[in-house]
Computed example of a mutant assay.
Amino acid sequence: MSTPTGTNPSSYPPSSSLNHDKAGSRLSDQQKKKNHILSEAKRREAIRAEFDRLAALVPGMGGQGRSEAVVLQATVEFMREQVGKKEELKVEATRAGISEEEFERCYSLAQAKRSIGGGEEGRAGI
């Protein structure tokens, strides 16, 4: 391509910027707003689905109204109980002469068996 005398071809805007300004190549404000609303609805639905899954794992949550705060509170309490039970088992294992490493190995193996055989509930225990 030849350029007019005395002009530098690098001073011309790139062809992509010329196409970028064509009508219809950008989203309108209304389209952006619609996309944002749809994305937010999808995000909220994903959060709801995960809270429902969590509520199904925590004992005593079945049939409750779906309040995210209640689900989180019950989950924290359940997890504290599970951690306490594990610590009690660890103390008993130590008294029986089982090393911490051996206890952790056995505990992990038992958890894996529970999750395979117990479905969703098997994964809830620690």
Results as ranks from 00 to 15, higher is better:
2 S>R: 04
2 S>T: 08
2 S>C: 03
4 P>W: 11
4 P>G: 05
6 G>D: 09
6 G>P: 07
8 N>C: 12
11 S>N: 15
12 Y>C: 06
13 P>E: 07
13 P>W: 06
14 P>W: 12
15 S>G: 11
16 S>W: 12
17 S>W: 15
18 L>A: 15
19 N>P: 11
21 D>V: 09
22 K>F: 11
23 A>V: 11
25 S>F: 14
27 L>K: 12
28 S>P: 02
28 S>Y: 03
29 D>W: 04
31 Q>R: 15
31 Q>M: 14
32 K>L: 15
34 K>M: 12
34 K>S: 14
36 H>E: 04
38 L>S: 01
41 A>K: 14
42 K>C: 11
45 E>Q: 09
45 E>K: 12
47 I>Y: 02
47 I>K: 05
47 I>W: 00
51 F>I: 13
51 F>Y: 14
51 F>R: 11
53 R>P: 01
53 R>C: 10
53 R>E: 02
55 A>Q: 07
56 A>H: 04
57 L>G: 00
59 P>Q: 04
60 G>D: 01
62 G>Q: 08
64 Q>S: 11
65 G>I: 09
66 R>A: 01
66 R>S: 06
67 S>P: 05
67 S>G: 03
70 V>W: 12
73 Q>M: 08
74 A>C: 14
77 E>S: 09
77 E>N: 07
79 M>C: 10
79 M>T: 03
82 Q>K: 11
82 Q>E: 05
85 K>A: 02
86 K>T: 03
89 L>V: 03
90 K>W: 03
93 A>I: 06
95 R>W: 08
95 R>D: 04
96 A>C: 12
96 A>S: 13
97 G>V: 00
100 E>G: 01
102 E>Y: 07
103 F>R: 00
105 R>M: 08
108 S>Q: 14
108 S>P: 09
108 S>F: 11
111 Q>I: 10
112 A>D: 01
113 K>H: 09
115 S>H: 12
116 I>Y: 12
117 G>V: 13
118 G>C: 04
122 G>V: 05
122 G>Y: 02
124 A>I: 06
